[in-house]
Amino acid sequence: MKRATRGFGLVEIMLALLLGLVISLALAQIFITSRSTFLSQAASASLQEDARFVLAKMIQEVRLAGAFGCLASVRDESTGAAFSAAFRSPVQWDAPQSALTLNTTAPADSGSWHNWEIHTDCTSTAIAWTRGRAPKPAEGEHVLAIHQQVYRLNQGAGELTLNGQPLISNVGAFEVLFGVASAADAPGIARYTAQPDPGLIRSVRLALTLLDPADRTREQTFSVVAAIRNRTG
């Protein structure tokens, strides 16, 4: 008599297939979740890096705004007396146009581009000239390069531009507030406002909202505050 043949029944096979399917679905879900988390973190890190680059550049220029040399007054010999407006208001914010204008001393490594040059001996004379039209500096004079930087939000394109050229894309908002003192001789900040008295400005708060075009992470708003080192009005 033959021994009974042993094996798997239909029910056992169905249970094994069901168990395998459940495990496969769980592993797939873990993979999808892990990939989604990785992409979200990568997108968030990319937004942070973009914001850090732009805001660091702007903060440097905010701190240099109004640094027009050693003397309190500068004689304007620039074309159309254009330097005088920059001298009176080194920091300007046009809220309706979302445009921030900074008139700053150009950093030493910025190259040859600038709007004006100030020739000064740091004791008695300081004269502003349009770039390219300045005479040769006199003996004992120093030359300060001054440039005008205009940061503007192009809302239609979602871009922050610098002097008309795209600087960073996927920008949802660009806001500027000024920390102002209660009086001209007060050092502390009493409040923040978008329309300050230039002579009361003590700091500038910049806020930049960036979006992820692939919608892998939520929009993020980054903000920094820089103290004003020079006069603003």
Rank of each mutant, 00 (worst) to 15 (best):
A207F: 04
A85I: 07
W116E: 01
R35H: 12
F31T: 07
S78W: 01
A81G: 14
T125E: 06
S124Y: 03
Q148N: 14
T232E: 08
L210H: 02
L47S: 05
A43K: 08
L167N: 09
R133T: 09
D94P: 05
V204I: 14
A42I: 05
G140M: 01
P135I: 11
Q29I: 05
G69I: 06
A95P: 03
M14W: 12
E139L: 05
T209I: 14
L19S: 15
A138F: 01
Q29P: 00
W93R: 02
L47D: 04
D215F: 07
G80F: 07
G158F: 02
K2L: 12
G172R: 05
T120R: 04
T37F: 13
A43I: 07
G164F: 07
T161I: 05
N163W: 04
L210F: 04
G156H: 07
W113T: 13
R3S: 15
G66M: 10
T209C: 14
I59P: 00
T161V: 09
L162K: 06
A184E: 14
T232L: 11
L102R: 08
L160Y: 01
S110K: 04
R133G: 04
G188P: 08
L160N: 01
H119N: 09
E49I: 05
A26L: 12
E139W: 02
R131F: 06
Q148H: 12
P90D: 04
P198C: 03
N103F: 07
T79I: 12
A43F: 10
V171W: 00
A72H: 04
G20L: 11
A28R: 01
S110R: 06
C70E: 12
Q48S: 15
V143W: 00
A42P: 02
S84F: 05
A157M: 09
P107I: 05
G164Y: 05
I32T: 13
L25V: 15
P187K: 07
E139T: 09
H114M: 01
R52W: 08
H142Q: 14
A81E: 14
L208K: 11
V204D: 02
